[in-house]
Design a protein around this nucleic acid. Structure first.
Length: 851
RNA sequence: GCCGAAGUGGCGGAACUGGCAGACGCGCAGGAUUCAAAAUCCUGUCCCCGCAAGGGGGUGAGGGUUCGAUUCCCUCCUUCGGCACCA
């Protein structure tokens, strides 16, 4: 069968315009153009996987592209770049299995994903494309790492400074001096218990361990101390919290970050250990419950354990420690499990009342938080309560709950109360409300040198090294004499060596350790050194990529400061909520650090953040290969075209909602585009439809057009893309019925459609006689007067029930509206002679009669 | 367990600051066009009673505030996401 001459041939049209945009560099962003306001729209760049794009990617990318195209039409100088977060485990696993260089796998995957991305017609400035695996890119990742290595944190000014400015105490030996400096670097090495995954032959960050097994692969993970590189993100905890006030992010995401940082204010309190000269420091957020402390608990790994354990308890303590050490994180955090612990035989002396209380060890106290020791107040802490019940330890209530019933239960030690109340059993402090007590007692302790105010964070320093091949090498040398030396800038990039075997040696080292030619170097003074063989985690490259887009080909510096000042901050950042904490926290941290050193001009990198929701399979389940419900974007584009795909992704529902895919609904938006096509083009002839004429629009059409202009524009501004599309559908339905479709009206509409379905819009625009691309056409002007309805229908209610509708001129006086409502036949009938008590007229909305 | 988000027709969803619940799309039913089909167009489509006019019910459940509640408040249920002994 012949294809009709003028039918909507999306395949041809999309190819044509994609080539046009590429050839004309239509979307090239112009640096430092002072004549227009700038707008930086950023997508979370994808990992180039072998699977290629899935339909979740184009969701966020379409949304950001609509905004980018809309902003261009509104006169903004738009920066809309794309790139590849290309280091990562899958390519390395593939290399281990097949011996293929991950660089080759990655390049192949990028080629495929670039093709897919281009097929959707996103208005990226492709000249700025980057990949984190490119040595010209990771050169600067290494450069930033060296900045961390060569900086310290000035506590007084609360900012990073060059390490040369670190005040080093006098009288130190050369070795001590080095040690002191190394201990203050923002990138430092530490022996830390890490999550060692034997199956992957690597350590994992806490966040890569989910439920005791590796996030990728699901292999068991155990604790094991190893030398690791750490970044001092904890120094930035307060600033990372405070500056959340500056950004326009979803409240839920901010809250996740706040909780992740987990700042808690309380006191550190000193307990003397009975018959020892050492003290035991604890951290508590409830110093007001000190009188209720009936025992102490220290972590099994606590350094004082050996010193204080009595001979009688030695064996039991020793055994407990060994069992605890063997436990994985999963076992230790399993709440279903009962509390365990062993008495050390030692006692501590409570500074407020000189009571002697027993010291236990238990793994419910973590060595890595606070001081690794607590005072246990079972009456007012759930965990202590549970422990005390199990081991029959005394429970002394010291806070009286406001509720008398609760108060009685607490008095009988039957209820653990963790809220605020009034002090009891607390000597001279009895009767004080919780808050006031906390302040008083903290001051009281401080006066006596028994305590001080303290702040703790759940946030830990960032474990920054991985034992992998496919990551950025650390620009670090370990000299024979133990010195740790950072490479100089002109030695960057330090490239990954070629290796024959990508398998980890299994010693805990990375596969790089086997590249001995690369590892062993001779220093200028003739002594020998070894390269660091760990590599950086995948987060590293994504911590600063938004800066490289500003100046992607600069070989002299990471980015030009003038360009940085012009483009930053990112105005709109769209991506998945799975990065709510880690990526967004890490990159904020790097950004603040770069801000301290003067390399960036804004405190925060991302002003506005939107999370797109996940797209589920047609069965309402998460898409996965094993379920067989994965939708392939290539197929959809082939069958319906990129414009339909884009439109459908936006029409499914609110951007941020989780929603299931539906091929049937996909056809619905495809029909809408075909209808749009037929409004302009005569399918028989391929010429402009005869109904498209140079004519004045009738009043109704003009009104609807302007209402649509308003709706679509404001919906784009508020990311309500689904309702914008619905408004356009209403308009097209109207226009399709008109015998005359004024050219000016059709053109305005095409411009509205352009950000959503750019290929068809460009094609129709051209067919309407415009030789230029519409990418920089002015967004249609909204005329409020034209959009205004002349008559409106008002509902009339009696006692809240709808009884009639009246048609009135839009600006009719209130009294008149009232009169007309009461005069309506149905209302008269419904009132049945009763006199209304009250008549409420809500202007332009409704009339409510109360009887 | 704690924190967060959300529950609206057969389905995806809409409803601005408390003001006509169900826009728009899908599906379905009937009709037009066609030799027939696809495509397209028209009409209908929350539920119940009724031929109709009309009436009653209805936004997870129950209560409250209000002339009026999907929207605000309280209690509860369900689903999804995050955290998981952080003292």
């Amino acid at each position: 069968m012949d294809v009709q001459e003028g039918a909507y041939n999306f395949g041809q049209i999309e190819k044509k315009w994609q080539e046009f945009w590429q050839e004309h560099k239509t979307f090239k962003a112009k640096d430092c153009d002072a004549s227009r306001p700038k707008y930086y729209v950023l997508d979370m760049f994808p990992y180039p996987s072998g699977e290629g794009l899935h339909v979740g990617h184009p969701e966020g990318y379409t949304a950001s592209d609509i905004v980018a195209r809309y902003k261009r039409m509104k006169g903004f100088n738009v920066l809309h770049p794309v790139g590849w977060d290309a280091f990562g485990l899958p390519a390395e696993q593939h290399a281990i299995k097949t011996g293929t260089d991950p660089a080759l796998t990655t390049a192949k995957n990028i080629t495929n994903m670039r093709r897919q991305t281009k097929s959707l017609g996103f208005s990226y400035d492709w000249d700025r494309e980057i990949a984190t695996t490119d040595p010209e890119y990771y050169k600067w990742t290494q450069w930033i790492f060296l900045k961390f290595f060569n900086s310290y944190f000035d506590e007084r000014e609360q900012k990073a400074k060059p390490i040369e400015e670190l005040p080093v105490p006098g009288g130190l030996s050369e070795k001590e001096r080095h040690q002191f400096i190394d201990d203050h670097r923002l990138a430092y090495q530490a022996d830390v218990p890490v999550n060692w995954c034997p199956a992957l032959g690597t350590v994992l960050a806490n966040e890569e361990v989910v439920g005791g097994v590796s996030e990728r692969g699901g292999y068991p993970v155990v604790r094991r101390p190893m030398r690791q590189w750490m970044l001092r993100i904890t120094k930035y905890a307060d600033r990372l919290l405070e500056d959340l006030a500056e950004v326009d992010w979803p409240e839920s995401i901010k809250k996740l970050q706040v909780d992740w940082i987990g700042r808690s204010v309380g006191a550190e309190v000193r307990f003397q250990i009975d018959r020892h000269d050492q003290d035991l420091w604890v951290f508590t957020t409830r110093p007001d419950t000190l009188f209720g402390a009936t025992y102490m608990v220290i972590a099994p790994e606590h350094p004082l354990v050996d010193a204080i354990t009595t001979p009688a308890q030695k064996a039991a303590v020793q055994e407990y420690r060994e069992v605890a050490a063997r436990k994985s994180d999963l076992d230790r955090t399993d709440l279903a499990k009962e509390k365990t612990g062993v008495f050390t035989g030692a006692h501590a002396i409570n500074p407020v009342n000189n009571e002697k209380i027993p010291i236990w060890i238990s793994d419910y106290v973590l060595i890595s938080y606070g001081t690794g020791a607590i005072m246990a107040v079972p009456a007012h802490d759930d965990r202590d309560f549970e422990f005390a019940k199990k081991f029959n330890l005394p429970i002394i209530p010291v806070v009286e709950p406001p509720d008398p019933h609760d108060a009685e239960l607490v008095r009988r030690s039957e209820l653990c109360f963790t809220g605020d109340g009034r002090a009891i059993n607390s000597g001279p402090f009895n009767g004080l409300p919780t808050r006031e007590f906390q302040e008083k007692i903290t001051a009281w302790l401080a006066e006596r040198g028994q305590g001080k105010k303290a702040v703790n964070y759940k946030l830990r320093d960032w474990l920054f090294s991985r034992q992998r091949y496919w990551g950025e090498p650390f620009p670090i040398l370990h000299a024979e004499d133990g010195r740790v030396i950072g490479l100089s800038e002109d030695e960057l990039p330090l490239r990954l060596p070629d290796v024959a075997d990508y398998r980890p040696p299994g010693t805990g080292e990375s596969p790089l350790a086997k590249a001995t030619d690369w590892v062993n170097v001779t220093l200028p003074d003739g002594t020998k050194a070894q390269r660091e063989t760990n590599t950086m985690p995948q987060w590293a490259g994504s911590c600063w990529y938004y800066l490289r887009y500003l100046d992607p080909r600069n070989s002299q510096r990471g980015w030009d400061p003038t360009k940085e000042k012009y483009w930053m901050p990112v105005d709109l950042y769209i991506g998945g909520a799975e990065h709510a904490v880690l990526h967004l926290l890490y990159s904020r941290f790097w950004h603040k650090f770069l801000y301290d050193l003067g390399y960036v001009s804004t405190k925060e990198p991302f002003h506005k953040l939107i999370n797109q929701g996940m797209i589920l399979g047609e069965d309402g389940q998460k898409m996965s290969k094993s379920r067989g419900n994965v939708v392939n974007p290539d197929k959809v584009v082939e069958e319906y075209g990129a414009d339909s795909m884009r439109l459908y992704e936006m029409f499914m529902g609110p951007l941020e909602a989780i929603k299931p895919w539906s091929m049937r609904d996909m056809q619905g938006v495809s029909r809408f585009l075909q209808k749009t096509w037929r409004i302009v083009v005569d399918e028989e002839t391929g010429q402009l439809a005869p109904a498209v004429k140079d004519a004045e629009p009738d009043e109704e059409t003009a009104r609807l057009l302007h209402q649509t202009i308003h709706k679509v524009g404001s919906d784009i501004e508020t990311f309500g893309f689904n309702t914008a599309i619905s408004a356009m559908m209403i308009f097209v339905n109207h226009l399709a019925k008109q015998e005359v479709r004024p050219r000016s009206v059709v053109e305005s509409f095409i411009l509205l459609l352009a950000p959503f379905a750019p290929h068809i819009a460009e094609e129709l625009w051209q067919r309407l006689g415009h030789p230029e691309s519409l990418a920089y056409q002015c967004w249609p002007r909204y005329e409020k007067e034209i959009a205004r309805e002349k008559q409106i229908e008002l509902p009339v209610q009696i006692n809240g029930k709808l009884r009639d509708r009246i048609l009135v001129p839009v600006d009719l006086e209130e009294e008149q509206v009232k009169a007309r409502a009461l005069a309506s036949g149905k209302i008269v009938a419904a009132l049945a002679g009763k006199t209304p008590k009250k008549v409420i007229v809500v202007k332009g909305k409704m009339v409510s009669v109360v009887v």
